[in-house]
Design a binder for these strands. Structure first.
Lengths: 329, 329
DNA sequence: TTGTATGCGTTATCAG
DNA sequence: CTGATAACGCATACAA
């Protein structure tokens, strides 16, 4: 109350308690302090409503207890889920999260890394798309879904196996001719392997398949065109579709409805990610579910690891299939 | 390169450039500096890869350029949208966002306020449920959807009018008997007014209505019971439902389907919030749309305002109706 | 215009 | 076990 212009400082507490500054610090940090001194200090802290100043501490200790998370947004439910579990894991370790949304802007990705450095964060967890991203030295850096080099740990779902599971599932559900559809950057990242796994299993099973991969800048109408081109007498040439993400799957299904093609009766659809309505209800489509809690845990474990350089450079976590009403089950 | 153990500091830059520390600071902060000096400093900064240390600056200036956002989570699409637009607005003002997820945990709400104080953030934007929350003094604090006192600005959608619009819409779509359903805390907050507005308009229109309000701790099955209790010979007593949130509306519709009641043929449903699939696609139900971008803008404008005490203590922003397939249009 | 010196709040080292 | 003091990196008031 005495000095209302500034928040109370350790010096204020020390004066109030009638002890030295160092003693206050020791109480705050839980070091050995005589019981009577501790009581006096704690009483003074209560009286003054003292809260330690993170900036002062960070300046002195060179540690902030903040981890920066760089991600496109939280509108996409997959990212929202990821952020959710990352936060949970960070909180377990008493770390705070500085969240940076890039909105897929490549220059912003780099800019946020810069900001994170200025904030002297204890580590960075990033899901980025900039092909020329410069990874800073001297700060723990973990990436999701994208491999940079052996010195930058990458955490991802086992996308390849996911693709294989999708093909196997469609085959076992009776599909005779399938297609893979995807939209995405030219960037080769871990999710690119969904296609590879799918192809691998199709070839193995002798299942005929088509490919339709759209680049970021190509109009969405190409998908409609593709589907119409493979429709004869109202019947689609495919009876199974594996689609790169649940989000895209949802849009494709909407197109199919407009074409009077029924899902799953006429064509079965499997997406990827494991998106649920409102994050906790039903799966919106049949899907390959990403192990988001495990991915988040691995990210946090890795970025906080004492010996980052000794960590594996690529961690692939197991996926599983879940029915969501767009397959015959 | 000389000193690889620590990130370079202004002193390092000064030495490298052969100028004084203060000159480096002035260059960094864009103050008047002779052109030749500026060049030397900038060259040295480039050579050393210097980045200023936020902690040092914050300690000195007592400003962090960080705003704490306290919110339950981003799994709920409404919160995800809010966080998205808050971030957009903050970025416009060159502020960073420290995101705190409470998961509706009341003690965590208070704890995060504490943390924000320790971090000496420049302001707090909070969406909370703790009825006994203590709002800190001396730090700009803005709340969403919940009024504390005239000294704590509250930003919200015009929930009351939203409720009225819902009733009017159902009436104009031919409904003869309607019901309001909601689940939520005992807490009286701005969203509570959705019901009040709905009732107000129903009374005005002479439209018969029922109420079904569930507390947080009551089992969801009560809703099913309620609907079954109002079903005779397979026919529901209501032909219109206004439901507190889109999330709940989605669940209720699922129950109705199991009861073989068609939406919107047998009963029309209007939710609240304006949730879209994947944040940018179709509305998932007919709904009263919250003006999320405007809410976010108002929050940021207010929390960064120089004269917080002169700001209005309650800002209600206009909502609008949007069709989403659960009404006859 | 540029250089110098001080202090922000904290932790850690060293004497007592 | 406690008290005094230096240093962390920066911005700024003041001196040159």
């Amino acid at each position: 109350m005495a000095n209302s212009k500034h928040a109370p400082t350790m010096a204020d507490v020390a004066k109030e308690a009638g002890v030295a500054l160092g003693t206050v610090s020791r109480v705050i940090n839980g070091l050995q302090v005589g019981a009577d001194f501790r009581d006096k200090v704690e009483a003074a802290i209560q009286r003054l409503g003292y809260q330690y100043n993170s900036s002062g501490r960070a300046l002195r200790t060179d540690r902030t207890n903040i981890i920066a998370v760089i991600i496109p947004n939280t509108i996409n439910p997959y990212f929202a889920l990821l952020v959710h579990y990352l936060n949970l894991e960070l909180e377990k370790r008493d770390k705070q999260m500085l969240l940076c949304f890039t909105e897929y802007d490549r220059s912003r990705e780099q800019e946020f890394i810069r900001m994170a450095q200025q904030n002297r964060v204890d580590g960075i967890i990033a899901l980025t798309y900039n092909p020329d991203l410069t990874i800073p030295e001297g700060i723990p850096f973990v990436t999701i879904d994208r491999f940079f080099s052996v010195s930058v740990p990458c955490i991802a779902a086992d996308n390849f196996t996911g693709g294989r599971i999708a093909a196997q599932k469609l085959a076992s559900l009776g599909c005779k001719r399938v297609a893979f559809m995807r939209i995405g950057s030219v960037l080769t990242n871990e999710p690119s392997k969904r296609k590879d796994g799918f192809v691998s299993a199709c070839v193995e099973l002798g299942l005929p398949f088509d490919m339709m991969v759209l680049e970021d800048d190509q109009p969405f109408e190409h998908f409609e065109q593709f589907l119409h081109d493979h429709q004869t007498d109202g019947k689609l040439a495919f009876d199974g579709l594996f689609i790169g993400t649940d989000s895209l799957a949802w849009q494709i299904i909407s197109i199919l409805k407009n074409m009077n093609i029924r899902v799953p009766e006429d064509v079965q659809v499997i997406g990827f990610d494991g998106i649920r309505m409102f994050g906790n209800m039903d799966y919106i489509v049949s899907t390959i579910v990403q192990p988001v809690p495990e991915i988040a845990e691995a990210c946090v474990n890795t970025v906080l690891s004492k010996h980052l350089s000794a960590m594996p450079s690529l961690i692939c976590l197991p996926v599983h299939y879940a029915a969501g009403g767009t397959t015959k089950e």
